[in-house]
Design a protein around this nucleic acid. Sequence first.
DNA 1: TTGACAAGTATTCTTTTGTATAGTAATCAT
DNA 2: ATGATTACTATACAAAAGAATACTTGTCAA
Lengths: 206, 206
Amino acid sequence: MKLLTDRQQTVLAFVEEFCERQGYPPTVREVAAAFGIQPRAAVDHLAALRRKGYLHREPGLSRGLSLTPRSPGAVVEVPVLGRIAAGQPLLASENVEETLPLPRSWVRGEEVFLLKVTGESMAPVILPDDLVMVRVQPRVARGEIAVALIDDEATLKRVYEEAGGLVLKGDNPDFTPLRFSPAEAADVQILGKVVGVYRNLEGRRQ
Amino acid sequence: MKLLTDRQQTVLAFVEEFCERQGYPPTVREVAAAFGIQPRAAVDHLAALRRKGYLHREPGLSRGLSLTPRSPGAVVEVPVLGRIAAGQPLLASENVEETLPLPRSWVRGEEVFLLKVTGESMAPVILPDDLVMVRVQPRVARGEIAVALIDDEATLKRVYEEAGGLVLKGDNPDFTPLRFSPAEAADVQILGKVVGVYRNLEGRRQ
DNA sequence: TTGACAAGTATTCTTTTGTATAGTAATCAT
DNA sequence: ATGATTACTATACAAAAGAATACTTGTCAA
């Protein structure tokens, strides 16, 4: 992003504060009035801010400007799934226990959910009580961690699709890999890819 | 807050989604167009939503409506610290690169910050590029992971205070523990305790 | 010294937009 | 059965707001 002049900086600050306080963006005339200048001059400032990438304007629309999302502010409500009821839509309200507001930059993808980890099979990368962020997708690359639905139970495993069938392997050597023949593999449904882990370290024997 | 009718609920959902996507609220006419109804009818809906407390309208102003924040205070802006400049207050703006909105339930404590991990010394629990959440406190229990400031550099280590001095030990066996005599220990400052880890698993060789 | 950019004034024009009037029809509780 | 609320149509109007034209002044870099 290009650098702003002092004047442009104060105009941007005004727009940001206005949005924050009013819940809607200012009009060209409100910007002008705030600085005691003519509407035309305010248009120039907004055009400069747009040109430099700090906001977006919808031509012709009143208050049709939106700030380009800076780091703070934008949160996405991500559903936390408990027991996954197979058969029905994954993100149906029956599955959703609660939602957590997470920064948009952490949420990679359209359909995303959080899952509370129960087993030890992915230790030490993923431990019980961790929250994993899962992006819904029907297939994952070889060796990536996925949420698989086997017999109505969601499990975290690394996925290896091979000629001989499907292998689901945990990182924990205490767990033996699950092998499925091509015929059996139909019973295994990949729900999505694990794209993030959050671990609360407090109140945990470390 | 009073209950909404089905129709009012869908209108509110539209307004919320519009604000989310556009960055500015819709006009009365845009609401009307979205439902194929006349502007007057949209006015009625917005009036109902206002009356029931779901939004605020500024009479006469185009796009002069703002949603009443539904879950107020659900998120806390947590500062992300880059290089830590010793000597000055920890959360001074010089240190803060950006802030991230995190759910309040994750933020345990008053003074909390996030730190991007650089070294491998805490592997495999904490890896480079992880974000750790640190609660500011001058002392930690034996064996807990802390952020220590040694020679103006922030490092993550498990802390063992012993009669013979202070020991800072990483989980990674490739790193030799740092030992400080009681005299030397004065140069080591505990900034806080690591209370959480967030790891983005995407775009990372797993 | 010339052109690009910033930061303005003054005025005008045209859309966009909120709101009003005057109705209709259905539901629901008193 | 009556008023209150919901949910609309159709048309109209005045204010709000964006954008345009035509300028001026100052700074800065090539």
